[in-house]
Design a protein around this nucleic acid. Structure first.
Lengths: 233, 233
DNA sequence: CGTTATGTTGACCTCCTTCAAAGGCTGTGG
DNA sequence: CCACAGCCTTTGAAGGAGGTCAACATAACG
């Protein structure tokens, strides 16, 4: 995981005021002046695909906000398997549990090349107490986590494997950041609570049925309306 | 849903200072004086079994904290079915989403006779801004919602139906409030993402295997260590 | 005492898992 | 440049787990 601080634009801390996604991330409510005067020890990091941001049950010093890319939060199962609990995209927050607890509740791994801001626990705690707009933004992120968890219960863990897969593809398709990103079959299985083989079979069947194409640039395009039909039942 | 206000002890608002579960609920951080002087328009309600606290997608004027009993949060599925997203017990909070949004995200229904405190949205928003201990308690409840949602993903929506059921029974057994409460089979199915029939079959099999007994008072007792074995895989 | 809701059980069939093998893609070293 | 290893995907075959539909039992209730 490589800090962006080599770039002179990022001298030791991330200049949130010039961040192109600042409207999506936590500090969107702060004025440029506030941000400048805060001298925040916030780092802008680049996480290569498969990089691990933090691991389940380890000490939790930092919160991360996603600037671009895709992060999975997974937990290990007692039988050796694993389950992906949530996917995080632009504007989502990883590791908020650090604000009320000592340890991370998941393992966070980049599924694509991903840019994140790393914010120390204490900084965010202080901002939460002193800055009402940050406070409000924090509450919203927390609720977003709940909503996303609920979504993986209702949409990705309920009904037939085919229906779940359709809902997953729709969800990925709605991603503004990298439309049509295809996780590996193993991750799909861990997201839907099915085996890798079943995930592969379903994707293959979707391709044969024309619900998924892979164009010349190796990008996958989904027939969202067709998938929506499958997602209903 | 019947207000407790007929009881002279509860004259129009809940006297949180004398609440026997105040250490579990939101206002545990406030002094008696603070509570008394706040004149909070908080109602103490009794929800009979099957009573509906609020419905999905309706306007959200209030947050509820559970004083005793058991509440289910469910969502309706497009195909007519339903999925229970989480269970709330003593100290849990229902409807926090009201603090950052306009509508409830679930339907909340009492599974047993349940006592709740109903707190108006605005009151909680104000307390959150003015009282740091309330603020902290609120963050903790929010995180608890996330943890509970994650638990229903990992423990109740992953693995074989038998394993899920074992984990559900263990979870219900740990309930300090009403140990060994048995939901109806339909609710079990909706919690685990399986059919009512499968839930019934598994419970029946557990009884035959001696993992569950029903004693003379019709209370069910579980062999938690035996269930823990099944829960592992 | 019938009525209704809920739990149980059976039969059948579909879907998913499991185990195994083969194909395809990529990077590496000869 | 080719061969080979390693990883991921795909596919097959077989068995098991769970869904579906239906019948029946049981308990609660008017």
């Amino acid at each position: 995981m490589k800090p962006n601080c080599t770039n002179p634009e990022w001298v030791g801390r991330s200049k949130c005021a010039v961040c192109e996604v600042r409207h999506f991330v936590l500090f969107s409510g702060m004025s440029s002046h506030e941000l400048d005067s805060a001298l925040l020890p916030i780092d802008n990091l680049h996480a290569a695909q498969h990089a691990v941001l933090y691991e389940e049950n380890t000490a939790a010093p930092s919160v991360y906000t996603v600037r671009s890319g895709l992060i999975k939060l997974k937990v290990d199962l007692p039988n050796g398997g694993q389950r992906i609990v949530r996917l995080l995209r632009q504007g989502d927050v990883a590791g908020i549990e650090t604000l009320v607890g000592e340890r991370y509740h998941h393992t966070a791994i980049a599924m694509q090349d991903t840019d994140v801001c790393r914010i120390p626990r204490e900084v965010l705690l202080r901002l939460d107490q002193t800055n009402p707009s940050i406070h409000q933004a924090l509450l919203q992120r927390w609720q977003r986590s709940v909503d996303q968890a609920d979504h993986t219960i209702v949409a990705l863990s309920t009904g037939s494997a085919e229906g779940r897969m359709a809902r997953l593809l729709i969800m990925l398709g709605r991603s503004g950041d990298h439309p049509g990103f295809m996780p590996c079959r193993e991750d799909m299985g861990a997201l839907l609570g099915i085996t890798t083989e079943t995930a592969s079979r379903i994707i293959a069947a979707f391709k044969r049925r024309g619900l998924i194409h892979t164009d010349r640039e190796n990008e996958t395009v989904c027939d969202l309306s067709g998938l929506a039909l499958l997602a209903r039942k």
